[in-house]
Write a protein that binds this DNA or RNA. Structure first.
Length: 414
RNA sequence: GGGCAGAUGGCAGAGCGGUUGAAUGCACCGGUCUUGAAAACCGGCGACUGUAACAGGUCCCUGAGUUCGAAUCUCAGUCUGCCCGCCA
């Protein structure tokens, strides 16, 4: 969550930044008011508490000295009643503030371009040239079915729509990709970590999926556990509630998990094929850094994902997301979009974000530097989405007869 | 799933109604000593909030309660460990 004090100390600038992220003026004022209300409620309550503590001490002293405590007791009782009311007021104020602030997105970096949606994103650069074909390139679902790699119907039989089954060479390719990605990331200094696929509410609040996006998550019945929508959640929350030493930062991790998303609101988009599934595989990068390190680590993460695509000989481009396309917790995001000849377009295959201290404030991830406890910066990025990488390989490496060439770097994994 | 035990600072571990944010040890930081290090000795060392700085407030799993006063008593819940059962 954002630092509310910014609204108190630097209202105009903070409000303007939030409005770039489509936070309404009303919400901003509500937030400020709620914070001020809580502050004064707290002060009042704490003063009453101080008084109560004082009187209690005196009471003990009177008892010891054998003095009469009747008058004192009356005073204490009166103050106690006041205390109860004041506490109630404070709690109400606390809940009011919480309800607002937990749903307010992060403040975008000042150099993030303004924009309404993905059409206003700004291309940074293209890497590798899209291949040319002497025939009309097919879309991945055709190739997948023709080669017997993906069975869409039987995935539906087992679960429901947007689930699929991968088999044969497809399954081996999937496994090869995961291994290749993990090795590649590890060589770049990201330590491999294997984490739970189910997490509790606290973890999801820490990274920002809850409370606002509960309808996007699969929840386990009768348990306060959710299937993870990305490994970012467990990897980042690994350090929830901890105070790290400045010297051990940055912590750089990579992990492979299945990811589960309800895709509520995605309507009829990408229903065909494997672009948007309820369950998909992803290799993730997560970093926890000092405040002064996060920009450099961000660049490393973008470079890692881009170089990975390059190693796979996949043409792609890097795009800076505009304010309108930026996710809830991100201060800055660069997407990597891979070229899909069958669709004749670039499609997202990785998204690298710096959340600065937004998640750290929620998850209480801090580090100690020169005796002070400071909020860490957290970053996450895909390196890469496995299913979409398979799609990209199929479409870019397809031959006229529908067979698919396997990128050189994967040969030793197959 | 059944039974038993437990939850205190980075860790270990006292405290079981009174001024305790909490003994002690380890770890950690600074110093003395040393060519350097170790040892020894001296000093410091929880988090959050708040303040210009003090002060003040909160926190001994969570939530309710008893009391003038709770880490300490009561109740409920959560989690962890062990034993039994089941099982990859």
């Amino acid at each position: 969550m954002i630092d509310v004090k910014l609204l108190q100390n630097n209202f105009d600038e903070t409000a303007a930044a939030l409005m770039r992220k489509k936070v309404s003026v009303e919400t901003i004022h509500e937030l400020k008011t709620a914070f001020e209300t809580l502050k004064s409620a707290k002060t009042a309550y704490e003063n009453a508490q101080a008084k109560q503590n004082e009187l209690s001490k005196l009471f003990g002293q009177y008892k010891k000295e054998g003095k009469n405590t009747d008058d004192l007791k009356n005073e204490v009782d009166a103050n106690k009643a006041a205390l109860t009311d004041l506490l109630e007021t404070q709690r109400t104020a606390e809940e009011a503030l919480d309800a607002i602030i937990m749903r307010v997105p992060n403040i975008p970096d000042s150099n993030v371009p303004d924009g309404a949606d993905e059409n206003d994103n700004i291309e940074i650069k293209k890497v590798l040239t899209p291949p040319t074909f002497s025939f009309a390139p097919k879309e991945h679902w055709e190739l997948a079915e023709q080669n017997g790699w993906i069975d869409f119907e039987r995935g539906v039989k087992l679960a429901k729509s947007r689930f699929s089954v991968v088999s044969g060479m497809g399954a081996r390719l999937e496994r090869a990709l995961i291994n290749f990605m993990l090795d590649f990331n590890r060589e770049r200094g990201f330590e491999e970590v294997s984490v739970p696929a189910l997490v509790n509410r606290r973890a999801l609040e820490g990274t920002g999926q809850l409370p606002k996006f509960e309808e996007d998550l699969f929840k386990v019945e009768d348990e306060e556990l959710f299937l993870i929508p990305t490994a970012e959640v467990p990897l980042t929350n690994l350090y929830q509630d901890e105070i790290l030493s400045a010297a051990e930062l940055p912590l750089k991790m990579t992990g492979y998990t299945s990811c589960f998303r309800k895709e509520a609101g995605s309507g009829g988009r990408d229903v065909r094929g494997m672009i948007r599934q309820h369950q998909f595989h992803k290799v993730e990068l997560v970093a926890i850094t000092r405040a002064d390190q996060s920009d450099a680590v961000f660049d490393q993460m973008v470079a890692c994902a881009s170089d990975l695509l390059k190693a796979l000989e996949l043409p792609h481009r890097l795009v800076t997301l505009c304010t309108g396309d930026l996710g809830f917790g991100a201060a800055k995001t660069v997407d990597l979009e891979v070229w899909l000849p069958g669709q004749n377009t670039y499609r997202e295959i990785s998204s690298v974000s710096n959340t600065r201290d937004f998640q750290a404030r929620r998850a209480k991830i801090r580090y100690k530097e020169e005796g002070k406890n400071l909020l860490a910066h957290t970053l996450n990025g895909s390196s890469l989405a496995v299913g979409r990488t398979m799609i990209a390989i199929m479409e870019n490496f397809q031959q006229e007869d529908g067979t698919v060439r396997i990128p050189q770097v994967l040969h030793k994994y197959l």
